[in-house]
Amino acid sequence: MNQPVIQCEGVRKKFGRTLVLNGVDLNIPRGSIVGLLGTNGCGKSTLIKCLLGLLKIDSGTATVCDEDPWDLSAETKNRLGYVPQEIKLYPWMRVSQVIDYTGAFYENWKADYCEMLLDKWELDGKKWIKSLSGGQLQRLGIILALGHKPSLLILDEPAASLDPIGRRSLLKSLLEKNAEEEQTVLFSTHITSDLERIASHVAFLDRGRVNFFGELEELKDQVGGNLEDLFLKMNSRSEG
């Protein structure tokens, strides 16, 4: 594997007096699908936000595509897709307008691909944003993140409010992108079954540190049990 897409070394982040990230080390290789696992409130979103420059890293270093995440260049952003945990869009706009608006800023926006995704996920472009349900909004958020065919895709709990069909469909299209374009995906979740199929690597985040990072299949082969068992084991180990 060549140079990692995302590199973290000793990343720390404090909110007031609470230490959320306590020295995260993580190297995400190109072309991998990484599942970021952890209990609720263990800092998954914080880590992702730090990697996108939404939050300031207190100490330690992180690079995304060899750049400081605090000040990513337009070039890198053109290759980056992000699906936030909570999709917040202008409620007074229509779905297609929001897509057009977002697309206007990208150099290589694929409007027809978005159309295709809209069709596939049964979203009506003429619908008002405020009338969308949580799951529909999530789908739109994913379309907005995929429209420019990013080479790095970061998803923060993307499947949380999707129904099983939508979830399966999302995972499938992630896999396709990954297979066709060597897209790297970082994917935070606490739903282990989402990862079983698609993840090449997993990272367990616990109490602000990465407890384990490696290939999922290797881990299963060595430790045994499915991801949920592993997840429970990881957490009990750290508790013990």
């Binding site: 990954n178 199929r197 698609i198 290939e215």
Partner: peptide
């Protein structure tokens, strides 16, 4: 590998492995 991964909806790396 790709066909296998697509139809089983699993990661290509797993198939390659």
């Amino acid at each position: 590998t790709r066909e296998m991964a697509r139809s089983l909806e699993i990661n290509t790396m797993t198939v390659s492995k």
